[in-house]
Computed example of a mutant assay.
Amino acid sequence: MARRRPATVHGTVIVDKPAGPTSHDVVTMLRRRFGERRIGHAGTLDPSATGVLVVGIGNATRLLRFATAGRKSYECEIVFGVETSTLDAAGETVATWSMSLRPADVADLARSFVGTILQLPPMVSAVRVGGRRLHEIARSGDAADRVPREVEVYRFEVEATGDPLVYRASVDCSAGTYVRTLGADLGSALGGGAHIRSLRRTRSGSFSLTDAGPPDQAELWPPAELVRDLLQIRLSGDEAAVARHGTHLADLRYTGSGPWALFDPEGRLVAVHELVDGRLRAMVLPI
């Protein structure tokens, strides 16, 4: 008798990633747990980092891009006086400084980074240059012409600890911001250098640590959770039938600039509509 193929799983899992495994390792764990190959995540965390990792399973992977654009929140420690090759505690020491810091000066300089700033992507990042990821270029020993990228920092607060060269930091920022670069740049602004350690993502979009669980226990939520931060439109039964065929609704009132998540009268996600080059594009989610 032929083995029965397990039913396809569609959904959202909010993982509290532990230190050690990569984000891809977490995906592998979830593939084994749910028996589903189509799994992706929204926003990589380094192996040593912990915290909120948003994961889409099955058809929900098509919605992940709507979850990656939200603001992120992090906590970490900044260690001043030591610069590392990776800008975090996993790297090798490349320079040291004798630094004497006043908490008020450190806090004032940290606040000066709030707003729209330019960041140079670290060489250990996944940013592509010439078709290759920077971390691949770094491992090969080749040079890369990195281009600063514009990011938004909404909050950068630091607090002194019992160690005069270690400060706790809290950061709210846009997607694509590198907290390790913030720490290193703050060290440079103070006349020396720095690296970060104990990085923990506490929030990704509207998902927080209270929503998250370990990879083997995290709850499976409906795919629609991935678009809960989008503008939402509740359709009538007739409108939902039209939308399920990938047709936009000419008489539907789209407010704002989108994207819009469209739900049927029972609250099930039917489609996501968005403006692309000034034209409305419909993505149907057949679940």
Rank of each mutant, 00 (worst) to 15 (best):
D163N: 14
S188I: 15
A42G: 00
I78C: 02
G192E: 02
L45S: 01
G131L: 04
V171C: 01
R133M: 04
G192Q: 06
R128F: 14
T96W: 06
M99Y: 13
V114S: 15
V124Q: 15
R65F: 06
R65Y: 10
R228E: 07
E159P: 02
L134K: 04
D238I: 07
A169T: 10
L165H: 11
A243G: 05
A67R: 02
V54K: 09
Y167H: 12
A184K: 12
A90H: 13
D25M: 00
G20T: 11
P259E: 05
A241S: 10
A261M: 02
H135S: 08
E75N: 03
G192F: 02
L87S: 11
K72H: 07
R5C: 03
F207E: 08
T93N: 12
D238M: 09
Q217E: 14
L87P: 08
G183W: 01
L199T: 00
P148A: 07
S204L: 09
A7V: 14
E225I: 07
V52R: 05
G267F: 06
V242R: 09
A271R: 02
G176N: 00
G43P: 01
G193A: 09
Y254S: 08
A19M: 07
M1G: 13
G35F: 01
R5F: 00
G183H: 03
R32H: 11
E266R: 14
P265Q: 08
P223T: 02
A212C: 11
L30Q: 02
L64V: 00
E157L: 11
G131F: 01
V276H: 06
A60M: 05
R33P: 00
M123K: 00
S100V: 15
I287V: 12
H10S: 04
F156P: 09
R244Q: 06
D163A: 03
G258W: 12
L275W: 09
A212Y: 02
L230P: 07
L182F: 08
L209G: 00
A250H: 15
I196Q: 01
I14V: 15
D46L: 02
G81Q: 13
V9M: 00
A19W: 11
I14F: 13
S174N: 04
P47F: 02
G56Y: 04
E83I: 07
K72V: 05
A7D: 14
T86K: 12
A261C: 00
R146W: 05
A104Q: 07
I137E: 05
H273I: 13
G40T: 04
V94I: 08
V54Y: 12
E36T: 03
I57R: 01
R32Y: 03
G58I: 04
R279V: 04
Q217A: 14
D16K: 03
T8P: 15
L87T: 14
L186N: 14
G193I: 11
H195E: 06
L101P: 14
S257I: 14
S257K: 12
D88F: 04
F263W: 06
F80L: 11
L120Y: 14
I233H: 03
Q217P: 07
G20C: 12
R65W: 10
G51V: 01
V26H: 09
A69V: 10
L230V: 13
S98F: 15
M283N: 08
